[in-house]
Simulated assay, not measured.
Amino acid sequence: MNFNLLILLSLLGAATAFDKYPKEFVFELPDNEEFCFYEEFAQDAAKEAFNTVFRVIRGGNNDVDFAITAPDNQKVYEKQKQHFDEHEHTFRPGTYSFCFGNKFSTITHKQIYFALNRKRPESLAEEAGATNVPTAMSLLQTKMEAIHEYLVTVETVQSIYKVREAEGREISEDLNERVMVFSAILAMAVVVCGFGQVVVLRTFFSDKKSVSYPRYPTKA
C-alpha cells in the first residue's frame, strides 16, 4: 500500500512539473548571428539526465553550430554545421547556455527546432525514488506502469509531429509563394499576348491602300 501511495504522489509531482519540461522552441536564426537560451538547474539536477534535441527545419544547407556552456564559461558540448543532433547530458547546479550559431552563413537565415527534456525513468518506481523496484506488481501497479509508458510514448510522438508540422508548414508556404509568383507571371504573359493580338488585328483593318488609275490623253 505504501508503494501505491508513493506512485500516486509521483504522478501528482509529475503533473505539477509538466509545465517545466519538456521545453520546446521553434525560432528564426538570422544570418551571421548567434542566439542563446539559458536554463538554470537546481541542486538535484545532478541526479537526473537531460536530453537535448535540435533540428534545422529550413535555411541554406540546413546546418547550424551548437554549443553548451557551463556556468564556469567552459564548453561542455559542441557540434558544428549539423542538421540534427540528439544527446544526453548531466548538468551541475548553475545556469547553462545553449547557443546556436549561424555566423558561417552570410545570406540565408535558419529556422530551428530545439527541445530540452528530462530523461524519463524506465519505471514509476524509479521516478518516485524507490530504492527497490518490485519485480512482482499488483494489478494497480501494472496499470499505472502501462499508463506511464503510454504517456511517454504520446509525448514523444507529439514532439515528432510538432517538428513535422513545422517542416510541412514551411514547405507549404514556400510552395504557395512559388505558385503566386508563377501565376502572376502567367497573368502578365496573358495580358501582353492579348494586347499584342489586338494591335496586330487592328493593323489588318486600318491599313488603307490608295488605288491609282492610269490617265489617258484626251483627243483635241
Rank of each mutant, 00 (worst) to 15 (best):
K143S: 09
R92P: 00
N4I: 12
V200M: 09
D207C: 02
Y38G: 03
S97E: 08
R118E: 14
Q111G: 00
H148A: 07
A67F: 02
F205T: 13
L11G: 04
L201W: 13
V199R: 13
E78M: 08
V190H: 04
Y38V: 02
S210F: 07
K110V: 00
F204L: 14
N73Y: 03
L151K: 10
V181C: 02
K79F: 01
S159I: 01
H83L: 01
S105C: 06
E167A: 11
I107L: 07
Q111L: 09
N4V: 06
A184G: 07
F98T: 01
S212E: 10
N51L: 13
A45H: 08
N176S: 14
A184V: 03
L201V: 01
E33A: 09
N2V: 07
N132R: 12
E86Y: 02
M144S: 10
A115C: 12
E173P: 00
D174M: 09
N61H: 09
A220D: 11
A15Y: 08
T16G: 09
E78K: 12
E167W: 02
Y213W: 12
M188P: 00
V190N: 07
V191H: 03
Q82R: 12
G196E: 12
A146T: 10
Y216G: 02
Q158V: 01
P22W: 06
V157N: 05
Y161M: 04
A146Y: 11
I7C: 07
A128F: 10
L29F: 04
H109D: 03
A67I: 12
E126A: 14
N61A: 11
V53A: 06
I185T: 09
G194P: 08
G13Y: 11
K75Y: 01
F25D: 08
F54E: 06
L11C: 10
N176T: 09
T135Q: 14
I160H: 02
F25K: 14
Y38H: 14
L186D: 04
F18N: 10
T153F: 10
G129P: 03
A184K: 14
E122C: 01
A220Q: 13
V152P: 00
A130V: 14
L8K: 15
F66L: 02
V26C: 11
L175T: 08
R202C: 05
N62L: 05
T135I: 08
L186I: 10
L6A: 15
V211L: 07
N132D: 07
P121E: 11
M1C: 03
F54N: 08
K143N: 07
Y161I: 00
A125R: 11
N62M: 04
N32T: 04
A184C: 04
K162Y: 02
D174Q: 15
F100N: 06
V181M: 12
E167V: 03
R120P: 00
K20E: 10
K75T: 09
G196L: 14
L11H: 10
V76A: 02
D207Y: 12
A15K: 13
R178F: 05
L116S: 05
L9V: 06
E127I: 01
F37M: 02
T106Q: 07
V26H: 11
C193L: 15
E170T: 10
